[in-house]
Design a protein around this nucleic acid. Structure first.
Lengths: 239, 239
DNA sequence: CTCCGTCTGTACGCTAACGCACGTACAGAC
DNA sequence: GTCTGTACGTGCGTTAGCGTACAGACGGAG
């Protein structure tokens, strides 16, 4: 089965100047991104960077004892593999598909060459990287000070922003792993949201019923990340 | 009083190619960096970037309710103000001097111009930024999974690496603010370390007696950050 | 239609860290 | 030598989240 998709669904690709776009287009390879696929392993050199179109990718840090924590999330607004052009080649974290979908990928060498032209593409990617940094900072602060309930709201909203519709296919177990908390804790938090009429949960299917309600229950962290994303990543690249 | 100092104490400056160094030298302005000084306020445009020589700077996120959390720490291995060349101009976090000392600063415009030459300076700064990202990621994970005791050890080690000697001037109150925990919690953790003979504490003066002991008590996070710093920032820039 | 695996809900004791409220003790000012 | 402020130590009740254990419940495979 071949994948039919609109590359421009990825905001970074959509923001490319026409000339770059023409050059990239034939090199962009469509890929399925099934749930759980590891796009980049900790401390391993990447051979591709990924532009999610409908998938969502989690950047995780996995501890020595196996516990994990989500550091940031990448959807159709971004790119997986920033360490490549940042010059480090590898990073101590892992990129895993959190919500199945499709995407496009580009050979690492091509990405490097394009970045090193030091033109608008570079500046676009650096701005995206700063947005990613904001997300990481906020995750750190949020992990320190906010309750599981608030964090769940933040997480739902971040995921929702990167999907079409208001459905989310995730088991509580999976969410718990990403947030780095107990599964039972997620159950409790989810029930509270359900009782409040904000979501409906049924065996791995979350339906968001009241988005503003979620935003209100969430900590400030979601709003900060959203604002920075919007500020740093205008729909069209101003050249 | 004029400040006498060796600019090459900052690893980034030390790694500059000779030609850049000659150009930068006259533009680098020595500055005192007293405890508590705010080098960059959240969401405010920077007019300088700072290269600490003997000072240590904390990057903090300050929440709406006033609580704060340290996201990363910058000493003589780095630069304060990466958001400038990353293209965002501002960031939602704050940079505060955590340990008094001296540093050098450079006008924002000059920093931009130098970065935009897209040569070795740019690549050096990007690699440093990736090291900083590693620190943020690790902070996030650490905040999630590790005990106050472990985090204190990590924090002491990170600070120690950025200072000469084994003395550290910090009150427990200040440490608590940075880690985003209670002052009493720090007291307890410090006492444990003291009883174990790893440090000596007296009214804002910490003396580290047994560094290997601290490393052993610390979580993996310190080692990961250290390793990435060493990997990404060789003493000399390979041109 | 039934069986079985996965997913979800519940319960209970435990611990780390919190919030608050004191007491103490050192250090420099006068 | 006393006085005062900052820094440090301690105690106690509270709470969020953990670990463990288990029961129900849904849904696809056969």
């Amino acid at each position: 089965m071949s994948i039919v998709l609109d590359p421009k669904k990825n905001h970074l690709l959509a923001a490319l100047p026409e000339s770059e776009w023409q050059r990239w287009r034939p090199q962009l390879e469509p890929v399925e991104m099934p749930l759980g696929e590891v796009l980049s392993e900790s401390d391993r050199i990447l051979d591709h960077v990924y532009f999610p179109l409908t998938a969502i990718v989690s950047l995780l840090y996995v501890m020595e004892d196996g516990a994990s924590a989500e550091i940031a999330v990448v959807g159709n607004e971004g790119i997986v593999g920033v360490s490549l052009f940042m010059g480090g080649e590898t990073t101590p974290s892992r990129a895993v598909v959190q919500s199945a979908g499709v995407g496009l990928r580009l050979k690492a060498q091509m990405m490097m060459d394009e970045f090193n032209r030091a033109g608008p593409v570079m500046h676009l990617l650096l701005r995206y990287t700063q947005a990613l940094i904001t997300q990481m900072v906020q995750t750190a602060a949020c992990n320190r000070h906010h309750s599981l309930d608030q964090q769940l709201c933040r997480w739902l909203l971040l995921s929702l922003d990167r999907l079409e519709g208001s459905e989310l296919a995730m088991t509580q177990e999976l969410i718990a792993n990403l947030l780095g908390v107990r599964r039972e804790g997620v159950t409790e938090a989810v029930l509270k949201l359900q009782e409040a009429g904000l979501i409906r949960y049924a065996r791995g299917q979350i339906t968001v019923l009241d988005r503003p309600g979620l935003e209100q229950r969430s900590c400030e962290c979601y709003a900060v990340v959203k604002k920075e994303c919007d500020r740093l990543l205008p729909d069209r690249l101003a050249v």
